[in-house]
Design a protein around this nucleic acid. Structure first.
Lengths: 214, 214
DNA sequence: TTTTGTATTGAATAATCATTCAATATGGCT
DNA sequence: AGCCATATTGAATGATTATTCAATACAAAA
């Protein structure tokens, strides 16, 4: 009766978060948003890319909204992990950490055009979906305060006193957001090399004796 | 036959850009995007807010897409004008101009939460709609080059040589974009005063003797 | 007043989608 | 093998929405 044979069931797992299909759908969602935009992302397209039926995608995530939210959560966690790894590395001193953070923020894994497109899509809806805001805002607060603490350590080791740790940290984080957005417009001009160079020059100007910022 | 009387016709104008209804629809579009987001903005809602019929909105702008594009163009022009006014003011010296630009970028007319929401909505679609990209990119190129030229003049009058005009200009423009986005998340924390202070402190640190950056 | 051309309406159309659910397949259990 | 519980399907449903267009109102001209 059926033309297309059904998928062979994957081994069942109690934690749905670890199900293959769960992750396949999230990956497909991110790819679809990156390729077509949030506005033109439909369950049908995502399901097709994940190679499951449309009905299944909805069944698994209860709703499209929930699928989108899960995808945002996934991206957010990925970023958090890469950041956390830098802070747990005991071989790094404060300046080394700052440099690693810059490298990470403009690495091809984090700052590629597809992922930025997804981030910006969600950002743009933040004002209208409290659930998006919660994730994005909480994320931001963590990075702000951790970065500020880190800069405080750097300041302590240098003779920089004009700019407060808060000011440096807020400036850096804003710059990153702004540069990410520009990567979307013009990825050639705003290459990773260019962006990293710009940010490092900012730090170099503050900590004029710290040769590592170059 | 008709319950609702039709609107009384406005005096006809040859240039459709000056028609009252034309502008009413654009204003209504911006308000609707600001309130509900680009994704949930429908012609029906816009038409209702502009107090014309749904059919008319479509007739006037040919398509929804065209209405959105016209609204983006309007915002873009508004920004361009405010920027241009600063450059045409002959009473200002280079530093004075930079300060005016900062004031303008975080004025309540330009950097209010509604308009930022609209900007970010369009930004997020830039990768998928070449027509949006054209407007946003062209705008950005103008500000980049004009700002760079301006900073070159400031550098010339000071002993700052470490950072190039290009670097300062790119850093400033990225910061503004980043801060605008943050205003959406948390307008209390990222108040206009805070944002202006942060940016001025950036310049103060570069041009350490220029007391006006404070 | 009547005519005429333009402005505006609002209801109908057709397309797109999220969501639902009855039907079916699958793999483990007895 | 036959049964059961779960996984997955795909077609149907209903809601939303851009777009179209014939009908109508209006203002100015004749």
């Amino acid at each position: 009766m059926n033309i297309n044979p059904k998928k062979i069931s994957e081994p069942q797992l109690k934690e749905q978060e670890f199900s293959i299909n769960h992750q396949k759908l999230i990956d497909a969602t991110i790819e679809t948003i990156a390729k077509r935009g949030l506005a033109d992302t439909t369950i049908a397209q995502v399901a097709k890319k994940a190679m499951v039926s449309q009905g299944y995608a909805n069944f698994r995530f209860k709703s499209k909204e929930n699928l989108l939210l899960s995808s945002l959560k996934f991206l957010s966690d990925e970023y958090k992990n890469s950041w956390q790894r830098i802070f747990e590395d005991n071989n790094l001193d404060p300046v080394g950490r700052v440099i690693k953070i810059i490298e990470n923020d403009f690495s091809s894994k984090i700052a590629n055009r597809n992922k930025i497109a997804v981030w910006v899509s969600f950002y743009s809806e933040v004002k209208f979906r409290p659930s998006y805001l919660t994730i994005c805002q909480k994320q931001d607060e963590i990075y702000s305060s951790q970065m500020e603490k880190l800069i405080k350590e750097v300041n302590f080791l240098t003779d920089q006193t004009f700019l407060t740790p808060r000011e440096i940290s807020e400036t850096y984080l804003s710059m990153v957001d702004g540069l990410w957005q520009r990567i979307l417009f013009d990825p050639k001009m705003y290459s990773h090399v260019f962006c990293k160079g710009l940010v490092k020059k900012y730090f170099r100007n503050i900590y004029i004796d710290e040769k590592r910022f170059l």
